[in-house]
């Protein structure tokens, strides 16, 4: 069981949010949630989570832009970000790397795979 570390879960799909949050909580993580890019950037700054799971296709400011803003801010740029996207093309992975993402998962993303990625990055 992990020590209580905080995961910022950025996901607009309510069902996925429920599932991922429950699964991560049962594995000892504290979850904060955002459904759009603006909230993701704000919560990254305010809450300083240990990791961010960033859905890319979200309303308003998209996941790429939100990631860019978080990585541009000295206060939050050290937070690992895992891009979670339905776009599995190599250029998307490349873009994630260019933005400084620490992980890249494609949807549909099994909860087990998500958990493994979180554990790998923050224990």
């Amino acid at each position: 069981m992990s020590a209580e570390k905080t995961v910022l879960l950025v996901e607009d799909n309510e069902d996925n949010r429920i599932v991922y949050a429950m699964m991560l909580e049962y594995h000892g993580y504290k979850i904060i949630e955002a459904t759009n890019g603006e909230d993701a950037v704000r919560l990254a700054h305010e809450e300083k989570p240990d990791i961010i799971l960033m859905d890319i296709s979200i309303p308003g400011v998209d996941g790429w832009t939100a990631t860019q803003r978080i990585k541009d801010n000295p206060d939050s740029q050290g937070i690992p970000i895992v891009a979670v996207t339905a776009h599995a093309l190599p250029e998307h992975r490349q873009r994630a790397e260019q933005l400084g993402c620490d992980g890249f998962l494609t949807k549909p993303c099994e909860p087990r795979r998500l958990l493994e990625e979180v554990q790998k990055l923050i224990g």
């Binding site: 991922y20 049962y26 339905a86 993303c109």
Partner: peptide, 21 residues
């Protein structure tokens, strides 16, 4: 297509998480 994929993906995730837990 995106909507259907999202919904079916969410259902699979929920069942997978249930099995895991």
């Amino acid at each position: 297509a995106h909507e259907i994929k999202n919904s079916v993906g969410a259902a699979l995730n929920a069942l997978s998480a249930r099995e895991m837990l």
